[in-house]
């Protein structure tokens, strides 16, 4: 696959449109995902960490250069609803999978149970924190 490298070049003074941010962010995410996948396939933990960290930093740097509003209150609400739904579905699913694995004698199921419990505790703590604040993001 050919990538026009000049499109990826950003000088210090360049600002990005939202559309360009989506293209570049998508390219970085794709490249990071490919490197991460390769790292997992070859068992290279260093590559996994490096790919994940680099992609995260690059997307963050790109986002800082966007001259348009990236997230407004409508999108923030949509994000909240989506996050909530993911939590509602993913955590019980992971907990159930963990319990099934443990009951089948597989010790890695315990990790899933522990992670699910940690997520629920974190959710409860953050909910308590945010519900006490005077105003939220909007």
């Amino acid at each position: 696959m050919l990538i026009n490298l000049s499109m990826l070049y950003i000088s210090n003074t360049d600002m990005l449109s939202y559309r360009r941010f989506l293209i570049l962010g998508g390219a970085v995410t794709f490249a990071g995902g490919a490197a991460l996948g390769y790292g997992i396939a070859t068992g290279s933990q260093m590559l996994v960490l490096l790919a994940f960290g680099t992609a995260l930093v690059l997307v963050h740097l790109l986002r800082r250069r966007v001259d348009e509003l990236v997230v407004d209150e409508r999108l923030a609400r949509a994000g909240e609803a989506a996050s909530h739904r993911v939590l509602q579905l993913a955590v019980p699913a992971a907990a159930l999978a963990g319990v099934l694995l443990v009951s089948a004698g597989r010790s890695e199921g315990m990790l899933l149970v522990l992670v699910s419990t940690a997520f629920m505790l974190l959710y409860a703590a953050l909910f308590a924190w945010y519900s006490r604040r005077d105003s939220l993001a909007y």
Binding site: L69, D72, E73, L75
Partner: peptide, 11 residues
């Protein structure tokens, strides 16, 4: 209008 009130055009 979006720019004046601080939201995205889609909003």
């Amino acid at each position: 209008l979006a720019e004046l009130v601080g939201v995205r055009r889609e909003t």
